[in-house]
Simulated assay, not measured.
Amino acid sequence: MNDIPSMPADAGPLVSVSRLSKHYGGERHLIGGQTPLLKAVNDVSFDIAAGETLGLVGESGSGKSTTGRVLLQLEAPTGGDILYKGENITGLSKTLLKPYRRDMQIIFQDPYASLNPRMTVGEFVAEPLDVHGLAGARSERQERVASLFSKVGLDPAFMKRYPHEFSGGQRQRVSIARAIALNPAFIVADEPITALDVSIQAQIVNLFQDLQDELGLAYLFIAHDLSMIRYLCHRVAVMLRGRIVEIGPCEAIFETPQHSYTRALLSAIPVPDPDVERNRRPLSFDVAANLPPEEAVLRPVGDRHFVLEG
C-alpha cells in the first residue's frame, strides 16, 4: 500500500471510531495474583467529517488523551475498529500504516517536551519531509520549511534557532508547522493550549481555525477549557471514566445538556462578572456514585445529539 484511498465528496466520515477500547493491567503473575484492570477507554464510538472539529472534554483521567493516542495507533487498541476514509486501519503493521501516518498527525500538550532540544526548529519541522521522502533538493526543502513558518505566524529567519530560544506560544507554533508539513487531512490536538499563557491561548486557537479554513483540516480537539471548545468546535463529546456520556452539536451541548455530568462541567465555567461569579454555585457531581453501567448505550435525544443511558 503506497497511497491512501481518495475520498469522494459524497463519502462518509473522514474518521470513524467504533467501540474503541484501551485497557491496562489485568495480567496474571507467575507467583499468583492479578494486576488491577483499568479501562482507560471503554466502548467509545464517534465520527469526524472532513473539515470538522470534534471537541473532546472531561476531567483529568477521563481517557481523552488516551483516545487520541489510540486513534492514531501510537498505542495499540484493546478492541474496536478505526476507519480512515472508509479503510479499517486497526492493527496494521508499521509499514502498512506509514501512508496513514502522513495523513493523520498529532500536536501534543507540552510544546517544549515534544521538540528535540538538539535540533534547530527548522530541522525539526523538516524531519517529516525527510522521513516520507518528500524533502527534494536542499533549496526546495528550505523553501518548504520557510513557507510553513510563515503559515503559522513565525519569521522564517528563526529556522536556525533552537527550542530554548522561543516562548511557549512560539514553540507550539513550531509544533503546528511540523504537524501540517505533510498536508494532512486530520489532526489530533491533545490539549494544545493548556500549557500556554492565557494571553497566548486565543492566538493559537485562532491559528487552528485559520488553518482549518485554509487547508480543510479536521480536528479531534482535546481540551479542558470549555469556552475555547465552544468557540472552535462544531460538535462536542463529553467523556467520563473512559466512556462518552454525551455527544452532539456544540450549541445543543451548551444550551440543552442532557447528562448530569455535562451539566456539572458547564456550571463550572467561570463567568467574567465578579458579582455573578461570587454568588454562583457550580453543580456537584459524585463520579463514584454515578458511574455508567457497562450495559449503558448512547441513545438519541435530538438531531445528532446522544446521551449515555443504562
Rank of each mutant, 00 (worst) to 15 (best):
V205F: 01
A202D: 04
D103Y: 00
G169Q: 14
I180K: 00
R118W: 05
L154G: 00
K151R: 15
R178S: 02
Q201M: 00
I200W: 03
D130C: 07
P184A: 04
A185V: 10
N183W: 01
L96D: 13
E123L: 09
G153N: 12
I176M: 08
A146I: 09
E123N: 14
R173P: 04
Q105T: 00
R141E: 09
Q105A: 02
V188I: 06
A179V: 04
V152P: 01
T120Q: 08
E123D: 15
Q201I: 01
F158S: 14
V152I: 09
Q212V: 04
M104N: 10
R144M: 13
S167P: 08
L196E: 02
G122T: 11
R178L: 06
L96M: 10
D103H: 01
F108Q: 07
G168P: 02
Q203C: 06
A181D: 01
P117T: 11
H164W: 03
L148Q: 08
M159S: 15
E191K: 01
Y162E: 08
D110A: 08
S114T: 08
D190E: 07
P117K: 13
G136L: 13
Q109P: 09
L211N: 06
V145A: 11
L196R: 05
A181N: 02
R138A: 15
T120A: 09
S175Y: 01
A126N: 00
M104I: 10
A195M: 03
A126Q: 01
E140G: 14
A126M: 01
E143I: 10
E165L: 08
S139E: 15
P111G: 10
S150E: 12
Q201A: 02
A157F: 06
L97V: 07
N116F: 09
I176H: 03
A179Q: 04
I176N: 05
P117F: 12
Q105V: 00
S139A: 15
D130T: 12
P192I: 00
D155A: 08
I180V: 00
S139F: 02
V188R: 02
L196I: 04
V174M: 07
L211G: 04
D155Q: 11
R141C: 04
V152D: 03
K160N: 15
A185R: 14
E165T: 06
H164C: 04
M159L: 13
S199L: 09
F208S: 03
A179P: 03
G169W: 13
